[in-house]
Design a protein around this nucleic acid. Structure first.
Lengths: 139, 139
DNA sequence: CTAAAACCTGACGTTGACGTCAGAGGCAAG
DNA sequence: CTTGCCTCTGACGTCAACGTCAGGTTTTAG
C-alpha cells in the first residue's frame, strides 16, 4: 500500500493543492493508479516547479467517475472519450454513437448478471432448504 | 480462427461423441478456450484411443454456463468450485459461503452498472435534446 | 490411397490495469 | 542541517483468458 494514516501537518489544503498521496487516500485508489490515469490522459495535474503533481479539488470526483466507468467494463480508451461528455454534458455527435453503444453493452451485461444471480440464488436456496438452514433465523 | 463452415459429413453425432471443433461451433467459443477450460478442470472429455477429445452432449450446456459465470466476473478458480453445485443443486457448506459472497459481489456490480447506465443516459438525453435529435424520428 | 481438414501437445505472445522495485530528488520539523 | 516521509521517473513484473504458431498425428472425403 501507499497511504495508511496521514499525518498531513496542520493547515494544509489550500484549495487546489491536493498532492497525489492525499488524492489517493481520498479516493481509495493507489498512487500508481493515479499516475497511470495521467498516462492515459484521463487525469491532468498542475505541476509545481519541482515537478510534483497538484490536483484541483474536482479531481476527487473525476477519479471516482473513472473508477465507476472502469467498473462498468469500459476500456480506458473509451473512458477518455466519454469522460468530458459526462462531466460537461456536452456531447459531440461521434461520441454520441459511442455512448449509445456502451449503454447497450452495459444493458446486456446487466441482463446477463441478473440471470447469473438468479442461478446462484437457486443453488443457495436449494442448499439452505436441504440443510433446514432458513436464512431469516440463523440463530 | 478455427472453425468456419463445418462440412461435417452426414451421419455423425452418435450421441456422446461430439468432437472439440463441433463443440466450439455449437457454443461459439474457440477450440483453444475449450482446451483451456480442461486445463482449469472446468470441463472433462473422454479420450479416444488416439487421444482425441469426445464430449457428452451435456457439455454444450456446461460450456455455456462457464461462459455465463465468466461474464459475471467469476474467476476460473471460483467457477471450478461453484459449477458442480449449480449443475447438481447439491451444495457443500463451505461452498455455500462462496456462493453467497459471489452473489453479493454480483449484486453490487449490478447496482454500480445501473448507476453508470443512468449517467450515460443523462448524457445521451442531454445531447439528443441539444441537437433536437429526438430518438424516435431520426429521419 | 491420397490429400485435405481436424486434432494433438507444447510453448510463447497479448492486453489491460495496475504492482513493485530502484535510484534520485523535494519538503516540513526539530 | 539532518532526518524521514513524500514524490519523481523509468522500467520490469503480474495475472487471467485466451490467441497464435510450430511440428506432428489422425480422421475423413473422394
Amino acid at each position: 500500500m501507499d497511504g495508511g494514516a496521514r499525518p498531513v501537518g496542520a493547515r494544509e489544503r489550500r484549495r487546489g493543492s491536493v498532492r497525489i498521496g492525499e488524492l489517493a487516500a481520498a479516493t481509495g485508489v493507489s498512487v500508481r493508479a493515479l499516475r497511470y490515469y495521467e498516462e492515459q490522459d484521463l487525469l491532468v495535474a498542475n505541476r509545481s516547479p519541482s515537478g510534483q503533481r497538484h490536483y484541483p479539488d474536482t479531481a476527487v470526483e473525476r477519479v471516482q467517475l473513472i473508477q465507476q466507468l472502469y467498473a462498468a467494463g469500459l476500456a480506458s480508451k473509451t473512458v477518455v472519450k466519454v469522460l468530458p461528455c459526462i462531466e460537461t454534458e456536452e456531447v459531440a455527435p461521434q461520441i454520441l454513437e459511442l455512448l449509445r453503444a456502451e449503454r447497450a453493452r452495459i444493458d446486456e451485461q446487466i441482463t446477463g448478471m441478473l440471470e447469473t444471480r438468479d442461478r446462484l440464488d437457486a443453488a443457495i436456496t436449494a442448499a439452505s432448504e436441504a440443510r433446514g438452514d432458513g436464512r431469516s433465523c440463523p440463530r
